[in-house]
């Protein structure tokens, strides 16, 4: 099972690129896609999901070009788009039954799978209520269930935890971790902690280009010794933000603890801190901006 994205570009209009010269080779596991708004994450996911075609380059699923033979991938694809809708008059069972038929599942298998999936996403109690009356988080869970209907080998989830409460987010993270064994999961999100909890590798994207593809521990290693904690007075914070890349601030009785990502110590009073993925993400994105 292999997904090979080879030199893929997507041009929307003249000089407007969604993705440029993007190359990535993936095996089973969870790939966390991280990048700022407009970085090209959703564009990449739509192309892998066979919704849009690359302007140039090719995407191969187990060696087959998905632009030429999209159904070979679609049969084993689960896709949760960032912006998807539902038929509000149908209940969750009816909606999933409909999509199961669209995906080509035998009715008997589909019935059992739907019951199990509704249980998995904690919607059993609401299974027969019209989806139009669902909260945003419940709809999102219906979306997650539909992506898993056909037991996908490739699961693409774009901002899957948007609208989920903390408990459901943890449930989803566990679900992704459970699924990752023999599958390839593409997980796009702004929430670094979601990636931190589940990803086996991480791709950093900015302005349509791949900045870095590495194991989480390698990314952490790259910023080792570059994260600092410095307690400053509250009124100095604005000046500090203008001078340094601040990952986080915490109010304390003696001032504000600023978490700073910097090549060197911002001040002799600053102390080194163990890095997190969020620090690494900020470091690479900011570094790219400086070099651009």
């Amino acid at each position: 099972m292999e997904l090979h994205i080879e030199n893929v570009s997507k041009q929307y209009r003249k000089a407007v690129w969604g993705l440029r010269d993007f190359t990535l080779r993936l095996a089973p596991g969870v790939l966390g896609l991280l990048g700022p708004n407009g970085a090209g994450k959703s564009t990449l996911m739509r192309m892998v999901a066979t919704i849009t075609r690359p302007s140039s380059g090719a995407i191969y699923w187990n060696g087959l070009d998905i632009a030429a033979q999209p159904d070979t991938l679609r049969r084993v694809l689960g896709y949760l788009p960032q912006d998807f809708g539902v038929y509000p008059n149908l209940n969750a069972v009816e909606f999933l039954t409909y999509l199961a038929a669209v995906k080509g599942l035998p009715p008997k298998q589909a019935r059992q799978r739907i019951e199990e999936l509704l249980h998995l996403v904690n919607l059993t109690e609401a299974a027969y209520r019209p989806i139009g009356a669902f909260s945003g988080g419940m709809r999102q869970r219906v979306g997650i269930a539909q992506a898993l209907l056909n037991d996908p080998h490739l699961l693409i989830v774009d901002e899957p935890t948007v609208g989920l409460d903390p408990e459901e987010r943890v449930r989803f993270r566990n679900l992704i971790a459970d699924l990752s064994g023999q599958r390839l999961v593409l997980l796009s999100t702004h929430i670094v902690s979601d990636v931190e909890a589940t990803a086996t590798s991480i791709a950093l994207i900015n302005r349509g280009r791949l900045l870095h593809h590495a194991l989480p521990e390698d990314l952490l290693q790259a910023v080792e010794g570059r994260v600092w904690g410095w307690i400053v007075p509250s009124d100095a914070l604005t000046t500090l933000k203008a001078q340094h890349l601040i990952a986080n601030t915490t109010r304390r009785a003696d001032g504000v603890l600023a978490r700073i990502v910097s090549e060197t110590a911002p001040d002799p009073a600053a102390t080194p801190l163990p890095p997190t993925l969020e620090d690494a993400y900020l470091h690479f994105i900011a570094h790219r901006r400086e070099t651009a």
């Binding site: 739509r46 999901a49 066979t50 919704i51 159904d71 679609r74 049969r75 694809l77 896709y79 788009p81 912006d83 998807f84 809708g85 539902v86 038929y87 999509l99 669209v102 995906k103 080509g104 539909q146």
Partner: peptide, 10 residues
């Protein structure tokens, strides 16, 4: 907005 779900099916 169900079209993306339909269009990514076989």
């Amino acid at each position: 907005r169900v079209n993306r779900l339909l269009f990514s099916a076989p």
